[in-house]
Design a protein around this nucleic acid. Structure first.
Length: 440
RNA sequence: GCGCCGAUAGCUCAAUUGGCAGAGCAUUUGACUCUUAAUCAACAGGUUCCGGGUUCAAGUCCCGGUCGGCGCACCA
């Protein structure tokens, strides 16, 4: 089969729908356009034929009269999914459908597979995930999701630039996987004959740029965690991390909520959204509550990182959670938040003042050395971001890493390893700074 | 990793207590000058995921495997 190598394309379906919305039933515009796309539906009716053409922007009907269109018979034998390019006049049919009345047309490519049932689309998950290109044509909601994701990435990047953050790229292959609590992927460098890990977070590299004198940096990119796979968890996912010198963590929370609300406005035009049929609002400001307050309120008794561990373990048992021997009061408190406070985390909220025990890279709280100046934002019950005043004291940082190493020795395969180069970098002295991670 | 469920025509799905494997759409052929998942008529289309077993007889029951979905666990 020989098909043309190019097509003089000059119009998109969605733009035609918008531009010619005023045409009345049976009216002909006199304007000739060239559109191209896939034939998704074909209705042939003797000396007339109608086809639904879909392109990247939307759909428009093709209208053919045997007396007008060239090669009319051949058109009616097209297969669903075939690519065509057509030249014709923009008209509205007698029955009111905006159409391109075809003068000439050409088949640009043949589809050897169909795109599923024309009503049900493709339902087979295996086929949808292994052949996303088919899914994109068969199921418009897939295309919308991907388009929106691209718009979100663009809006995030633009807003970071607008706030004076410089975009950087840091190493993905690392000798030590660090910056988060997660199991890494291993790989091997042949020339160096040494083991490397795919990064689980860019955190420490970005902090070293702050040590190096950049006040505001961010990185948007893939990180890799060796964990379970599900529709909500991808072993490789995109994260945003940014660092700002001189900000306090209240500043970082304000930046966070304005970034999320702003991106929602940029992409959707509103901060009012719905997830799993339940509405919520990204409108700022978001409430800021300490972890101890939220847990105490929900369980009806005063609890904090200073509560005896035994009591916290008892409370966890109510939720069928068995505290591991390595869990101190801080870890227990965090587990209680996750188990008991799901409902409070539906509408966007900041949970603040995390225990130092579970925050090895965060600076201690000015009011309580057992806590850190760390917050996480939640929406729809899921963590959106994690931010804190960065620990800049190399002595304390080394001690925290050593605590982590003890956890690792005790069998915690997600505990951090000591990153000597990072500790050394802090020894040169760092401006006080705040970091933010946002992961999807 | 554990548990539950599923796999039948190109696609979406049926098939009663074990008793001749079906429909719609798509494909092929024909009719049709305003259709909208067009309609009407006809033809064709099958290793019932794979391998064993029980039975006169297995899509259906039993065992093993592969792939997938959901839940749990892990996590963002």
């Amino acid at each position: 089969m020989t098909t043309p190598y190019t097509f003089d394309h000059n119009a998109f379906a969605a733009a035609l729908q918008a531009t010619y919305g005023h045409l009345t039933d049976g009216e002909e515009s006199g304007d000739v356009v060239n559109v191209a796309g896939r034939v998704m539906l074909l209705r042939s009716q003797g000396k007339l034929a109608f086809a639904t053409l879909r392109d990247s922007s939307g759909e428009i009907q093709l209208f053919l009269l045997s007396a007008v269109a060239e090669n009319f018979e051949e058109f009616t034998k097209l297969h669903l999914g075939d690519w065509v390019g057509v030249t014709g006049e923009v008209v509205r049919t007698k029955r009111g459908e905006l159409s391109v009345k075809v003068h000439t047309w050409v088949r640009l490519a043949e589809a050897l597979h169909n795109f599923g049932d024309k009503w049900a689309g493709i339902a087979d998950f295996d086929l949808r995930y292994r052949h996303r290109e088919a899914d994109l044509w068969a199921n418009p909601e897939t295309r919308q999701a991907l388009t929106r994701r691209s718009a979100v990435v663009r809006a995030v990047r633009q807003r970071c630039w607008d706030q004076g953050f410089m975009e950087v790229e840091t190493p993905i292959l690392n000798a030590v996987p660090t910056g988060a609590a997660a199991r890494p992927f291993r790989t091997h460098h042949n020339a160096l004959d040494s083991a490397f890990f795919l990064r689980i977070a860019p955190e420490l590299w970005l902090k070293r740029l702050v040590v190096g004198g950049y006040e505001r940096v961010f990185e948007l990119g893939r990180v890799f965690r060796n964990e379970g796979v599900s529709p909500r968890h991808n072993p490789e996912f995109t994260s945003l991390e940014l660092y700002a010198a001189y900000w306090n963590y209240e500043d970082m929370m304000t930046f966070t909520e304005e970034l999320v609300a702003g991106v929602a406005l940029d992409v959707l035009g509103t901060t009012e959204v719905e997830y799993q049929g339940r509405p919520f609002s990204f409108a700022t400001p978001w409430p800021r509550r300490t972890m101890a307050e939220l847990v105490s309120e929900t369980l009806g008794e005063s609890l904090s990182v200073h509560t005896p561990r035994e009591r916290l373990v008892e409370l966890l048992a109510r939720y069928d959670v068995t505290a591991q021997p390595s869990w101190g009061p801080g870890r227990c408190l965090e587990e209680l938040l996750g188990e008991a406070c799901g409902e409070q985390l539906w509408h966007p909220i900041f949970v603040t003042d995390f225990p130092v025990e579970i925050s090895p890279l965060a600076r201690r709280h000015q009011a309580d050395p057992e806590l850190t100046e760390r917050f996480e934002s939640y929406a729809a019950g899921r963590e959106l971001s994690n931010g804190f005043s960065e620990l800049i004291d190399p002595v304390d940082q080394r001690a925290r890493f050593e605590d982590q190493a003890r956890l690792a020795a005790a069998g915690d395969d997600e505990a951090m390893q000591i990153d000597e180069d990072f500790v050394k970098s802090l020894e040169w002295g760092t401006a006080p700074d705040r970091g933010l991670g946002r992961r999807h």
